[in-house]
Design a protein around this nucleic acid. Sequence first.
DNA 1: GCGACAG
DNA 2: ATCTTGTCGC
Length: 260
Amino acid sequence: MRGPPELVRPDLVPDPGNSHDEMEAQQREIAAVATFTDDFEFDPAPIIDGQLATPGEEPPLVAGVDQAFLDDRAISAIVVSRGGEIIERVYSVTDLSIPYIPGLLAFREGGPILDAVEKLTNTPDLFVFDGSGRIHFREAGIATHIGVVLDVPSIGVAKSLLCGTPTWSIEGLAADERVPIEADADVTAPDGATIGYAVQTRQYDSPNRHINPLYVSPGHRVGPATAADLVLALADGYKLPEPTRRADAYAEEAKSLVQD
DNA sequence: GCGACAG
DNA sequence: ATCTTGTCGC
């Protein structure tokens, strides 16, 4: 049982003390180092196919990351699972120094998340973050930023679209369907590049009520299609994938504890 | 100047 | 994100 992921790029840790321009400059640096294609060691088959492709081998460790807030503090929770079974939960409480600014989320919540990462006794094979990855103005959303700093495979799962354009209508998507999100003038990626997918993990049958899709994008070392495949496979009857739901629940639990 | 903008 | 009851529809 190894320890937490190693902080491979301490020089790129998001520092809320930086100026707005320095933050944007660092994000361009993050994007330049990030890998938006499949480049991981673990076998995704146990997750995507729901079974062990290699009998005798352990399924990969998936970490869900989410946060809750209380006053000017962030409660960061990480829940690690293997084959759908929870094997570790950690959380940290960190004081926040800057407000939420669209496009600069990692500088507000990245440090707090890294605080929680340090408490892990396991080394996850994949991280699922609450927020965007490559679907970001400078292709460096929080999932990409943390993924690069730790050099771990990561995926961003957002509940709303920050930027980019759906290749076709995302209205009335059925469960398991997806629509590419392509780069437009607001994104540094080549125009038309697929920077993520609108993913419908769940949908109602009735025509008078519908569920909006999730916006999944590569964080680091995972391509867009695989990221969508993984999120769909990790969802289990709810809109949000299980790793995210568990982290959300644990963050809320920790929050109520912190409140005294 | 106006609009748009993850959590 | 957070503050919050009931309520509409599966």
